[in-house]
Design a protein around this nucleic acid. Structure first.
Lengths: 385, 385
DNA sequence: GTGAAAGCGCTAACAA
DNA sequence: TTGTTAGCGCTTTCAC
């Protein structure tokens, strides 16, 4: 390992001089030609400053820990991690990853983090859920992403579930739908409650009466398919808002079986903009995209702002890879809620709306910031394969 | 921050004594009651050893870096990360995560890793692809996961693509299929080549002539659906082996349109055991599962074995969360290839095979280790929601 | 402008 | 059985 000592020896100066130069503190203190020599020697020797030694002195490690359950099991995990890593990297931080399976005791991992002197923690879930942050972290800097604490302690960000339901339903109404079904999730999730409220509010605002028979809560597999078919057979809706894309698929199955064409005879909108489903549905499913990348990005910016006491977004020290507009400010009172854009495909009658004629619904009772719509031609995500 | 100094002061001993005790090197060197006092004081004060200081001395950080493209964009990312994290954690290592977007220059990140003195590197892709490890890492410890280098330098693990094709096709043959279609991928990927070879070999071994008209290479969306429908219309196969689950979906669409029932009139098998597709297909799609978790796990074990010069698996210092049987040994000559199990669902005529009557095909020309089949009732993955 | 020296928290060789 | 001491690589104060 090359050290400052080696450089000092080769450049015939003292270690402190090397330190000054390497840390760019040599302005008017070290002769420029000496500084140049030092840089040259450092380069030649392939010098890399020893982060460990540095941290030992400074007490700051420039690392954060990303703790999450279900790193493994959800397809969206990567986007949150990616967003957080992206922001962390741009701000000079490295990110540890810790899988916190619900069943597993993570106190050992937390001890290890404490040993490392990690500067801050991101605690994330991959579905908007209730969690409790381990009390060991009580006097650490913690940000909660895509989840809610029963007793709120830490700053957090979550999707604006209400406006997902509101916007999706409104989109169908604008396409001319009047009998709009809701295919829900059979579990009482935060997401379910919010989206359903948004659905009802949108109907109300449009003067369309709510009809319970148009709603159903399903899980997966054959029972779900049968429930959806029954709903469609019984009530013949002209639009369907599905809790998520997976549940929207059953509407496609029904349509294939009955010779209907989605996007012509029947409009459908889902949630998740799930890559594989959007890839494989014909016509492609229009869907509301949950901004996982953005939530991760926000989380990392937030935790780093707490560590450093400055706002990296305001200071423009950091740029998200996409969709910067939808990033809520870091210093919101209460939870940050992030707006979710509709990704237009082909499953709604009348075809994709262009950006121009869409005015995202202003969500009553929601503190969403001004929304940004994704482009009409689909996801803003990088394409796979 | 609580230090050994603090403990020493409170326990009225010297720092070295504390060090000896904390590091369990006090056997017959420190009086047991003194040791006990030290532990008590450490506990009271909430002492955590300072990993930084430790590493500074030892030159070892007990950290590894997981470098990968597409952390973001694939649903399987999480499983590889999860597997690697699982092994690393059990072996006392922490894992940094680095997103290496293809376009992005990661030399800065690597510099940071070098500064950190990360002990080893896992270089992973999420589809079995060709890669080149940055030359900066040439004299570091590196393991390649789910990818292949053009000029092989580092140990690596990848799925046994040949036997995926062979096993899937053989499974259909055992179910009585004789006209087996192959719906391939339109790109020349490593996976594509191997799976197709396996398909042909299985046909050959069963004495079934290869018929080019039964094969098609498709991408996604409407053109793919149309190509698949044409293939099925023209050739009326009794079984379909699809390159992946996403491509198998088009067969379902065709079946719905034509009043056919998958698993009765037509058998289908995919690859990926993609959660959302397996959740939503009716009847559920039988699929070959790529052991992402296991590859990540193997990768971490391998890199740590290289760092430490011992084999943690042989020493039983580590236990995978599932499917331990399929883990190849760490010290294979050449690349480790990992066998992929069929996850039985309902899309093959005759219903799921039980474990008993399935003898996984011994793959000619492949050095796969003895395979382990997943249980007949589906994935071994933890369930989402 | 430059260098000597102390010290971050810990380990390990050596002394007592 | 316990304590003293040097030093890991770096930063920072202070003297020259």
């Amino acid at each position: 390992m090359v050290t400052m000592k080696d450089i000092a020896a080769k450049a015939c100066v003292s270690i402190s001089t090397v330190s000054l130069v390497i840390n760019h503190r040599d302005k008017g203190r070290v002769k420029p030609d000496i500084a140049a020599t030092i840089w040259k020697v450092a380069e030649e020797l392939g010098y890399h400053p020893n982060a460990m030694a540095r941290s030992l002195r400074s007490g700051r490690t420039h690392t954060i820990a990303f703790i999450s359950d279900q790193v493994a099991t959800t397809p969206y995990a990567g986007e949150i991690i990616h967003g957080a890593e992206d922001a962390a990297r741009q701000l000079g931080y490295m990110m540890f990853i810790i899988d916190a399976d619900d069943e597993r005791d993570i106190s050992g991992d937390i001890d290890r983090m404490l040993s490392w002197g990690v500067d801050g923690y991101i605690y994330a879930k991959f579905a908007n859920r209730y969690i409790s942050v381990p009390p060991t972290l009580d006097d650490m800097q913690v940000v909660v992403v895509n989840a809610e604490e029963r007793t709120v302690i830490h700053p957090r960000i979550e999707p604006d579930e209400f406006s997902i339901g509101y916007d999706a339903t409104t989109r169908l109404i604008h396409a001319g739908c009047r009998r709009i079904a809701y295919i829900g999730c059979d579990e009482p999730a935060i997401a379910q409650v919010g989206r359903f409220k948004g659905y009802r509010q949108a109907l109300k605002d449009a003067g369309i009466p709510f009809d319970k028979r148009l709603t159903s809560r399903v899980s997966h597999g054959r029972p779900a398919l049968e429930a959806v078919c029954k709903l469609l057979d019984d009530t013949h809706p002209d639009g369907v808002f599905a809790f998520n894309d997976a549940r929207a698929v059953y509407v496609y199955d029904y349509a294939f079986q009955h010779g209907l064409t989605i996007g012509e005879d029947l409009s459908v909108i889902g949630v998740d903009n799930h890559e594989v489903i959007c890839d494989t549905t014909v016509p492609a499913l229009t869907s509301v995209e949950l901004p996982h990348y953005e939530m991760g990005f926000w989380g990392a910016c937030k935790i780093i702002s707490m560590i450093e006491g400055t706002d990296p977004i305001e200071q423009e020290r950091v740029t998200p890879s996409y969709n910067a507009a939808s990033m809520p400010p870091l210093d919101t009172d209460g939870p940050a809620r992030i707006h979710c854009a509709i990704v237009e495909k082909e499953s709604i009658v009348g075809g994709p709306r262009t950006h121009d004629d869409s005015e995202p619904a202003q969500t009553a009772g929601s503190d969403a910031n001004p929304s940004s719509s994704a482009s009409a031609d689909g996801s803003r995500r990088p394409q796979r394969r």
